[in-house]
């Protein structure tokens, strides 16, 4: 009995000994953004309205490769003013064979909330507007968005600080906004080779592009707790933890500002992960 008690206490001692965190010297400070802290920005932020197309897709979606072609054409047309994110979702997104599972936790939250599991794929939204089939009508929706004067401007770059990747996002309010806003930061990756089903038969080594790999913030973003009066500018640093299976050179960061209630996107910005 005594030995048992003694052993238990030694185990407790070992447990407690482990209860001591050691912070490496190059990690004494970390980007403050994870807690939603914003700082005044003095950057010149381009006054550009951009649009984001969310394409809900999957490797088992036979019409999705055709939708990809349409979207790629739009991307070529609009250049940096259109950002694409491919969200592999639901049963259509189940991997084939030994291919990687391209579905993500955050993407599943979006899919189940914004699309619904009973909806057929492909499905798309531009700036979280109406859901539509992306095989047609993309440019009309993008044109409508790009015609607006942006309420908020965005600028993003990725930097490396002591081997830690950081997304530095600057925002500028071009008009006073009263409603609460969120910012979301995510990672996309190009050129992931998988088998893709298609109406013409399976396509091997199909290059999946703009694939949502992870959302660094909460799926619906983190609040922008600042004074949102016209002319004010802020920046935030958000840490990047690259998922193991991602190829950094093929990755992009995407950040967008959305209305906390309606979830509609006000503006979006994209940059390469590796500058």
């Amino acid at each position: 009995m005594k030995k048992t008690i003694f052993t238990a206490l030694v185990c407790a001692l070992v447990f407690l000994t482990a209860s001591c965190d050691k912070i490496e010297q190059d990690r004494y400070t970390v980007p403050a953004g994870a807690t939603g802290q914003w700082f005044p920005s003095h950057e010149n932020i381009p006054n550009i309205q951009r649009a984001m197309i969310e394409k809900y897709t999957g490797v088992r979606c036979v019409n999705c490769p055709d939708a990809d072609e349409v979207i790629h054409a739009s991307l070529d047309h609009y250049g940096d003013n259109l950002v694409a994110v491919a969200i592999h979702s639901g049963a259509f997104g189940r991997p084939l064979g030994s291919d990687p599972d391209l579905r993500t936790e955050g993407g599943t939250v979006w899919y189940e909330t914004l699309v619904g599991t009973s909806t057929g794929l492909p499905a798309a939204m531009v700036n979280r507007g109406d859901l539509f089939n992306p095989l047609s009508g993309i440019n009309d929706k993008v044109d409508q968005i790009l015609a607006y004067q942006p309420p908020v401007s965005m600028l993003m770059s990725s930097t490396s600080n002591n081997d830690l990747l950081i997304a530095e996002i600057h925002i500028g309010f071009l008009q006073t906004i009263s409603q609460p806003l969120n910012i979301t930061l995510l990672l996309t990756e190009d050129n992931i080779l998988t088998t893709q089903t298609h109406v013409g038969g399976d396509i091997h080594d199909y290059a999946q592009n703009h694939v949502l790999r992870t959302i660094f913030t909460d799926a619906w973003g983190v609040p922008i707790d600042v004074d949102k009066t016209e002319g004010s500018k802020y920046f935030i640093n958000l840490p990047i933890n690259l998922p193991d299976q991602c190829v950094a050179g093929n990755c992009h960061l995407v950040a967008f500002i959305s209305d906390q209630e309606s979830r509609q996107i006000l503006n979006v910005v994209q940059c390469d992960l590796i500058p």
Partner: peptide, 25 residues
């Protein structure tokens, strides 16, 4: 050993916060 949850303590470098040890022995 003491445990405290994380909190925001700003770093002198703008945009950064202190990476606090939660367990101190």
């Amino acid at each position: 050993s003491k445990y405290e949850p994380d909190e925001f303590i700003s770093s002198p470098e703008p945009g950064y916060k202190l990476n606090l040890p939660l367990n101190v022995g």
